[in-house]
């Protein structure tokens, strides 16, 4: 399968990439290529220009600064999975990256590509919602910051203009968070993925954030589950009760050859329970 013709431009800096994006017609960014190239081979995407951002040092790497953790958009899933800093300060993020696809996919695919592409079955969006990440984005008009909860808008649709690049994702260190995923056995994409993050003080849950992927067109929070947890003790009964209402009221549940809507509904509850149990185990 051969993609349509395009011009290839390799950017060496963030600003050069933005300039190339805005000056070329029908241009698209190319990061790891592990969502875009398969689409181009099927000719579902036919960009006239590809701006390769795979070698820009400014958008790679994982750092801690002023108490916040930042992951460059060009950081591969493998780098996230094996990061000592993340294992120590935000293990849920490293866990999530290790659940993506297979080793070859993790060696090439990047955080920014996954967020921008926003596949309904992608893993990172659920975790980014649960850890309340914000994305730093640069474009022709300069910088802006978007919270994960505002970023994912619909299937393959995010708050990003044509000349903008996701530069990094920033979040606070977090221990008590966990990701539970039902894998599609061939591609490893999430049939259902749930990320849970909890804040506990004086023995009571003060706040909870639940991110759900795979269920509908895009990743969403589960406010009803969050409310059911607040003020309760982090015990099995609390978890079971909260997980029991997970997905209730959610409409347009995906149904495909891998899983019917009914099965997905059932699995939302199961994987919400597992994610909460994982988060409690890390308290």
């Amino acid at each position: 399968m051969i993609p349509t013709e395009f011009d290839y431009k390799r950017a060496t800096s963030l600003d050069e990439a933005i300039q190339l994006l805005s000056s070329s017609s029908e241009a698209k960014l190319l990061a790891g290529g592990h969502s875009l190239i398969p689409l181009m081979k099927l000719r579902l995407s036919e960009p006239e220009t590809l701006v390769d951002i795979g070698r820009i040092p400014d958008i790679k790497g994982i750092r801690e600064r002023e108490g916040k953790i930042g992951i460059g958009a060009g950081t591969t899933h493998h780098e996230v999975e094996t990061s000592d800093l993340l294992r120590e300060k935000a293990p849920v993020v490293a866990d999530c990256a290790g659940e993506i696809g297979d080793p070859q996919v993790r060696n090439r695919g990047t955080l920014g590509g996954s967020l921008a592409h926003a596949d309904p079955a992608a893993d990172y969006p659920a975790v980014m919602l649960a850890i309340d990440a914000e994305f730093h984005i640069k474009g022709g008009n300069g910088w802006r910051t978007v919270k994960a909860s505002d970023f994912f808008q619909d299937m393959f649709t995010v708050d990003l203009a044509d000349d903008e690049i996701i530069v990094n994702a920033m979040f606070d260190p977090i221990q008590s968070a966990s990701y539970a995923k039902l894998h599609q056995r061939a591609s490893h994409y999430a049939i259902i993925g749930v990320a849970a993050a909890l804040g506990v003080e004086n023995g009571l849950i003060q706040w909870a954030r639940l991110g759900l992927t795979g269920a509908i067109g895009y990743a969403v929070r589960m406010p009803n589950v969050e409310e059911a947890l607040i003020g309760k003790q982090p015990e099995q009964d609390t978890i079971d009760a909260a997980a029991g209402i997970a997905g209730d009221g959610l409409e347009d549940i995906n149904s495909d050859l891998h899983a019917s809507a009914e099965y997905r509904r059932a699995m939302i509850k199961v994987f919400t329970r597992r994610a909460l149990e994982g988060a409690v185990a890390r308290l």
């Binding site: 290839y8 290529g33 190239i37 398969p38 390769d52 795979g54 060696n107 090439r108």
Partner: peptide
Amino acid sequence: SAKSCTVFAAQ
């Protein structure tokens, strides 16, 4: 390791 059917030679 990488799947070479999913990488352009130019990359």
